[in-house]
Design a protein around this nucleic acid. Structure first.
Lengths: 238, 238
DNA sequence: CGCGAAAGTAAACACCGTTCACTCAAATGA
DNA sequence: TCATTTGAGTGAACGGTGTTTACTTTCGCG
């Protein structure tokens, strides 16, 4: 009984992943704006209307795609991190950042979808990212975590020039993170994101064709702020 | 004779700017992806086919819009710069950067169009930016210029960690700029762009609602690298 | 085997970009 | 002044899109 009813469910799930596979193929082939239900249905040998048995609307499909891609890039970064024997948080951050860049440049349309401006109807995705369980937040978390470890080890330097009081007033509700960690995370993240997004979106095509020196310099300047071992005076937790 | 023919031309130009005005109104109202020739024609009380007398295709119209917007934000930054009596290049850079952020946040859809990933069919815009006369390059130029002045005054510090040789190999043909200036410009620009783009595209909505502290910190850390007066040892030109 | 739910279809609606043949008015030249 | 050329604008059409509706077919379950 449950076997047979499961058969239906499995069939349903297979069709849904097939839909997402074709959607991704279109994303890769023609960019985020060209994902079309009718084309997916055509590729699958079905009618567009049939897809509405599986997906409430195109927007929802794209949002699911965003979720999958966030998970994919997170898992790729985690794998790169775990493949490195060095467990130093700084080292882990560098390895993950490089893997993020590698993934993004190897999957430009996908990266453009998740790191670019939300398509109309997909703005909702970033909103729901305030939920820590959502894929976007979990992706961010793998970069937050090592920074938290650095802070606990007393190795996180105060970020210069950041108005911590004002920043603290601009955080969402779930902010159980120390404000110093938030500050260093945000400044580091936006720097990485800047190089990546600028290259992804072609904003640097007039100025440089290879941004790896810039990327590596940013990583180096990040690592340089952090002492290899804890400064005794700034040690905080165990 | 030339009067009358000019009358036609002026009429034609008025219609064209009217088209662009309505296009921008749509951009502001519904985002970059929602600019539609049919809707523009509807708003103007015309047929969509008539617009093809003025614009070869939708893509071309959007590209023209990008050009206009680049000019607009450039002029806004120049105005802010010139309104400040301080002629110190560092001060000018800070003023222009703040104006850039102000403009972008006050014109989010427009900023998303020109700073986000190119719409399908508009990739061409960034390519043509290798031409220094194009609007995109001229916009970049107003930030390059003060940095060049700093370099000429011997106040530009070597950017740490950047592999200048490799970067030099990744520059387009028109690079008559000193490589040190290029390096400091690109690292500073991508940092600014990162904060701006992250906020524009909602990438930080889960982490912070107000990025001004981050932006100001980035400006401060840029200014901090640059000596107020020339280091005698590093002075280069007049 | 028959029933009922799920899957899929066809047609329609309202959009979209783009093209083509056509009309109409206005500027031009003789 | 009158005929002609040129340009603006129209209407219909083609193929594309998301989405809804009513209908049919398929298939697992009792």
């Amino acid at each position: 009984m449950s076997d047979t009813s499961h058969r239906r469910e499995r069939q349903r799930e297979r069709t849904l992943t097939e839909i997402k596979d074709f959607a991704r193929a279109q994303l890769v082939a023609s960019g985020p704006a060209s994902i079309s239900l009718r084309a997916i249905a055509r590729d699958m040998g079905m009618t567009a209307a049939a897809l509405y048995r599986y997906v409430p609307a195109l927007d929802a499909l794209v949002i699911e795609l965003c979720t999958d891609l966030h998970n994919e890039v997170r898992i790729a970064c985690e794998a790169a991190r775990d493949a490195d024997p060095d467990t130093d948080p700084v080292r882990q951050l560098l390895v993950m950042a490089r893997e993020l860049r590698r993934w993004a440049l190897a999957h430009r349309p996908e990266a453009t979808l998740i790191f670019g401006p939300p398509l109309p109807g997909v703005e909702q995705f970033h909103q729901q990212c305030e939920d820590l369980q959502c894929a976007g937040a979990q992706f961010g978390q793998i970069f937050v975590q090592p920074m938290l470890e650095l802070w606990q080890a007393g190795r996180l330097p105060a970020v210069p020039h950041v108005d911590l009081d004002r920043l603290a007033g601009a955080l969402p509700a779930h902010g159980e993170l120390p404000i110093e960690v938030t500050a260093v995370f945000l400044t580091s993240w936006t720097r990485l994101y800047g190089i990546l997004a600028a290259e992804l979106f072609g904003q640097l095509s007039w100025a440089a064709t290879d941004t790896e020196p810039l990327f590596e310099a940013e990583l180096a300047s990040f690592a340089a702020q952090i002492p290899a071992t804890a400064t005794p005076a700034s040690r905080r937790n165990s």
